[in-house]
């Protein structure tokens, strides 16, 4: 196991001194390779707090997180070197504005690798590779990161993490604020990385269509608790879906309507339009 949560809880102390449980007793295993995990839940359910535990940005109030064999718990006295973990587990934050700061895109992408003692030449190589990976061309490398559009900034911030060549890629709402085309391009990119390098990818998202299309495993957070951990098929067949304030993806909604109107069965639910066509063809 690459990341293992054992009874992890995390409490925030609010200014008036009261404690607020952001995570309650989380148990979770994440494999080194091959997983495509979607983390979903309402705003304030603890998703971001959970992913920040995955690369040791936060330490649990109680319980233990084990990342690549390094145990992280509440004890303060131990001086652990945590930065190497952040190379293994790359975390992309929701807003690119929080990390872009260099004069050129090239230097900004190189910043991560350089922090992990990668040579200048190698870092440049990686920057060139990463910018292509995120679907921009090399001409962007010489531009200022502040003159880019929102979607481009987002891609550059993802490239900045990709260039660190992490084993596991964690993305906090990578598709928020993007137009449908940009969103699809990013999802294609994640699928590509997942398929080519078999890297485990974890994305936080509110878009059920993405969950349905790409996720092999879904985690549902609700009020700090992990209420569901399973395949997306199991999730969308789960009766608690409404209770968790989650919607069905468009494709499943449509399939259900078809099933109802023509009293036919189209199980398993189609994952994409092609599969839906196949189902319809079979029926006809």
């Amino acid at each position: 196991m690459a990341i293992k949560f054992t009874e992890v809880s995390y409490q925030y102390s609010s200014p008036d001194g009261s404690l607020f449980d952001a995570l309650k007793n989380i148990n979770l295993d994440i494999a080194k390779t091959g997983e495509f995990i979607a983390l979903i839940g309402e705003t304030g359910s603890g998703k971001s707090t959970l992913v920040q535990h995955m690369n040791a940005l936060m330490k649990p109030s109680s319980g233990q997180v084990e990342i690549y064999g390094i145990k992280i718990n509440h004890s303060k006295s131990k001086k652990q070197k945590l930065t190497p973990l952040r190379q293994k587990v790359g975390l992309v934050f929701q807003f690119p504005e929080y990390q872009l700061f260099e004069e050129t895109v090239m230097r900004d992408i190189m910043f991560g690798p350089r922090n992990f003692n990668i040579s200048k030449e190698e870092a440049k190589q990686r920057a060139r590779k990463a910018i292509i990976q995120v679907g921009l061309d090399e001409s962007y490398l010489e531009r200022s990161p502040f003159n880019l559009s929102g979607g481009e900034k987002k891609r550059v911030s993802i490239a900045g993490i990709l260039a660190m060549e992490p084993d596991i890629l964690v993305l906090d709402e990578p598709t928020s604020g993007l137009d449908p085309k940009g969103r699809d391009a990013l999802i294609d990119l994640f699928t590509l990385i997942h398929n080519t390098y078999h890297k485990t990818i974890i994305i936080i998202t509110h878009d059920m269509n993405i969950v349905h299309q790409v996720a092999s495993r879904v985690l549902v957070m609700r009020e700090g608790e992990l209420v569901f951990d399973g395949t997306s098929e199991a999730l969308f067949n789960n009766e608690s879906l409404n209770k968790w304030n989650l919607e069905e993806p468009d494709l499943i909604k449509m399939t259900k309507q078809l099933e109802q109107r023509y009293s036919i069965s189209m199980r398993p639910f189609p994952k994409n339009i092609d599969q839906l066509f196949h189902h319809i063809k079979d029926v006809i």
Binding site: R86, G90, F95, Y98, Q99, F111, N115, I161
Partner: peptide
């Protein structure tokens, strides 16, 4: 609050 978030984002890129 923003400063805190930026520090976390940069810490993710290996800044100690």
């Amino acid at each position: 609050d923003e400063a805190n978030k930026i520090m976390l984002a940069q810490a993710s890129r290996g800044v100690d």
